[in-house]
Design a protein around this nucleic acid. Structure first.
Lengths: 158, 158
DNA sequence: TTTATTCTTGACTGTTTTACTTGGTTATTG
DNA sequence: CAATAACCAAGTAAAACAGTCAAGAATAAA
C-alpha cells in the first residue's frame, strides 16, 4: 500500500468521471482542464485504470471515458493500487529473501498494518463522495465555469 | 499524508525500540543489523524522530536511543509524519493558489479522505503490536540470533 | 468516404525523492 | 586517553514522479 500525489490524481479524476457519469463519456481533455492535470499524464493513469477494468474507453467523436462499474462498486483502494501497481511486497515476496527468518517478523507486522489500511480504503466507494449535496453543488459550479470558458473562447482558430 | 517504504522503515525501527525498551538504550547499529537497514539512513530517520520528540538519544558507550514516551502514547501516524515531513498541502496551501475556486473542491475532498486516514493511523499505537505474544516470541528469537552471531564473530579484529 | 475526434501506445526528459555512503564532530564511559 | 555511539553535513546512484512529444488506430459525423 502506498499513498502519493499520483494516487490522489487518479482518485480526483475518477471522482470527476463519477460526477458526470450520466451525461455520457468524459474526455481526458475535459478532466485535464477542470482538474488541472496534464493531459498526457492522465493518459498514462487511465491506461492503468483501464487495464484494471475500472474504466472503459469510447473512441471517436463524442467519446471519452466512462466508469466500467457503478460508483458504489468502485473503491478508493482499487484506484490507488491500480496506478501505483507495486503492492510493495517488501523484500521477501511472501517467501524468498528473508535469510534469517527474523526479518519476516517485522514484515508481517507491517503487512497487517497494510491490510487494515487497505480494508479501510476499500470501504470507501466513489458514490460516498459523489452523492453528497455540497459536492453536487460545486460540480454544478464547475460545469458552469467550463461552459463560460467555452463561450469566451469557443474554439481555437483554424 | 503519505505512505512509503521510508515510513515503514521508521515504524519498523520504532517497533524494535519499543520491544527492547526495558533493557536500556538501543544502538542504531543493533537495529541496522537485525532489521537490515543502513546505519546512516537510520541516523537520518532518527534525527527527525528526535526533533519530533519521539525518541531520546543517549551518547557515549552503553548509549543508544530510547522512546521518549510510553509505547501506548506513540502512534503510527506520528512516526510516519515525522519522517515524511511534508503534509503535502496540495497546490493551494489552504488558501492561495486555487484560482477558480473550483479545484478547491477536489482538494477538500481529498483532505477529508486524508484526515480519515490519519485518524485511523493515529488510533494505532506501538504497544498494540509489541504486547502481542507472537511478537514477543519472535523478538526473543531475534535476540537469540543476535547473541549467536556475536558469539561466532565476537568482535572485528583490530 | 473522407475527416475530425478521441482513445491508445511508446519513448523520452527533467525534477524530486529514496536509500545509501563518506567523513567527520561532539559527548560519555572506563 | 581511548573506545563508543550519538550527532551532523555533504554527496550520489537509482528510482519514482510529473510531464512532454509524436505517431497510430478506431469510430462517429460530415
Amino acid at each position: 500500500m502506498k499513498l502519493s500525489t499520483k494516487g490522489r490524481y487518479a482518485v480526483t479524476a475518477m471522482m470527476d468521471l463519477a460526477i458526470h457519469d450520466r451525461e455520457g463519456p468524459v474526455t481526458l481533455a475535459d478532466i485535464s482542464q477542470t482538474q488541472g492535470i496534464s493531459l498526457s499524464y492522465l493518459e498514462q493513469l487511465f491506461a492503468k485504470l483501464r487495464k484494471r477494468g475500472l474504466v472503459e474507453g469510447v473512441r471517436g467523436p463524442g467519446g471519452g471515458y466512462r466508469l466500467a462499474r457503478m460508483p458504489h462498486q468502485i473503491t478508493v483502494a482499487e484506484i490507488i493500487t491500480a496506478v501505483d501497481e507495486n503492492v510493495d511486497v517488501m523484500r521477501c515476496h511472501g517467501d524468498g529473501n528473508c535469510q534469517d527468518g527474523v526479518r519476516c517478523l517485522t514484515h508481517e507486522l507491517w503487512a497487517e498494518l497494510s491490510n487494515r489500511l487497505y480494508e479501510f480504503l476499500d470501504g470507501i466507494t466513489l458514490d460516498q463522495f459523489v452523492e453528497r449535496p455540497e459536492i453536487r453543488e460545486i460540480a454544478r459550479r464547475q460545469d458552469e465555469e467550463a461552459k463560460r470558458m467555452n463561450f469566451v473562447f469557443p474554439r481555437p482558430a483554424a
